[in-house]
């Protein structure tokens, strides 16, 4: 039971940090789920996060996988509700207010100011994730190739990500990684 409360507290807290996308919460997610509560190892967290990028819909459904690891189905449901309810309510009520704030002179300042900080948080998440995922030159090459492909073409990201997994298996087969 205590684990469910811990899950609820951790994911409700993390949800409030997801400004600019789920990646902004990644540094604290690593800190709490790996280092503080030991629910998953860092590689496991990376694996769930990456699998989550392959699932349809919102890209942080991997919180359900962490929930499963901790406390099966109840854990998954608690993690999901905790992760989506607080920000959901905030969006619901602020969304109704927002139109009234259209002429508020601080609105552009908040939008631009928070925007750059959000990009900074996503960058921090990318750095922390890169430290765990890019363990050899080959994996750096994979990341760079996916980046260039997605940046330069309109290909669906699911294809190069699945291809990365297959390359990972090939590297394993040839004993390179």
């Amino acid at each position: 039971m205590k684990q469910l409360w811990d899950l609820a507290g951790v994911f409700a807290y993390l949800s409030l940090l997801t400004i600019g996308g789920g990646m902004a919460a990644f540094p604290e997610m690593k800190e709490l789920t790996v280092d503080t509560y030991h629910w998953v190892t860092f590689p496991e967290l990376l694996h769930f996060y990456s699998l989550g990028q392959l699932a349809p819909g919102p890209n942080m459904m991997m919180v359900a996988s962490i929930g499963v690891t901790v406390a099966h189905i109840p854990g998954a449901l608690v993690a999901l509700v905790a992760f989506f309810l607080p920000t959901g309510l905030l969006t619901f009520f602020v969304g109704r207010l927002w139109t009234h704030l259209a002429t508020w002179r601080w609105r552009p300042a908040i939008q631009t100011g928070l925007g750059s900080v959000a990009v900074g948080l996503v960058l921090a998440g990318a750095i922390i994730m890169g430290r765990g995922a890019i363990t050899q030159v080959f994996f750096g090459v994979i990341a760079l190739a996916v980046f260039l492909l997605l940046w330069r073409t309109k290909i669906n990201p699911a294809y190069p990500i699945v291809a990365s997994g297959l390359i990972g298996m090939a590297l394993h087969y040839f004993n390179i990684a």
Partner: peptide, 21 residues
């Protein structure tokens, strides 16, 4: 091996999101 591969690919995906954002 597969999951390690997609983790590396996901880093590339985040970098694109970062550049676009």
């Amino acid at each position: 091996a597969f999951l390690h591969g997609i983790a590396a690919g996901a880093v590339g995906l985040i970098l694109v999101v970062l550049v676009q954002l």
